[in-house]
Amino acid sequence: MNPILLAPLFLLVAPLFGGLLTGVDRVISARMQGRVGPPVLQPFYDLGKLLQKDVRPVNPIVEPLLLGHVVFMALSGAMIVGGVDLLFTAFVFALAALLLVLAAGSVNSPYSFTGAERELIVLLASEPFFILMLAAVSKVTGESTFAGVLASPERVAPILPGIVLAFLLVATIKLRKSPFDISTSHHPHQELVRGLTSDMSGRLIGWVELAHWYESALLALFVLLLVNWSPPLALGAFLVVYFLEILVDNSTSRAKWQLVLQSTWAVTLVLAGGNVLALFLLRS
């Protein structure tokens, strides 16, 4: 299919995918805790309600920043499938994440500000990995676009075991699962009254939620890049990863940001960096 057509398709399908994923997640989490849990479509009900509620932004720039967050998060996915250079999208992705930080930071209240700072830590912790991963994928396949990587005869994941392992850790953070003093998951076990969104109401939370769905879809695209030889297998792998994350989340509910920053950097450096090094030594 023409990659230019894939971009709007992504814009439409990604929120459905992300929303369903969140719904399934809430059901599975509930089951793990011995509860029945909400309907699978619950995230869509929530979004629908949030969009109907009254909004009282604390300042005039929160909403523009949040809209930017949604737009650039959606754009980075659309750019990937639309055939823009993969590495470049890592920077668009970072911009999108940053805009959420700025939206919360602009509120200048204790909870929001602390949430923003910690989210910035998350960005600091995860950004090196995404750059390394996309660089390694480009290096392995010799391709710099999504379509190119999928069409490449080279199987990516078997050559990048370190990257795959590191992905598991970084995804935990990016899916807002752990650590508890950062994540904005639906579970009551995190501190800061959800920090980032403490002072957002109504559709403002809706925007954050929507962007998060796009982000989940984006992570799925990354898995697809790693498992480039079979899209169904990639989807399966993503779901397995996601299930593992829920498990991790429900069992390590007290990890804090210092640990996360240090461990993510260590893992990225050793596993992903080591993998990249091996790749360069063997491939050139």
Partner: peptide
């Protein structure tokens, strides 16, 4: 909120 009553069932 506990498994016995689990109000999250109703969203």
């Amino acid at each position: 909120l506990t498994p016995l009553y689990d109000v999250e069932r109703f969203g």
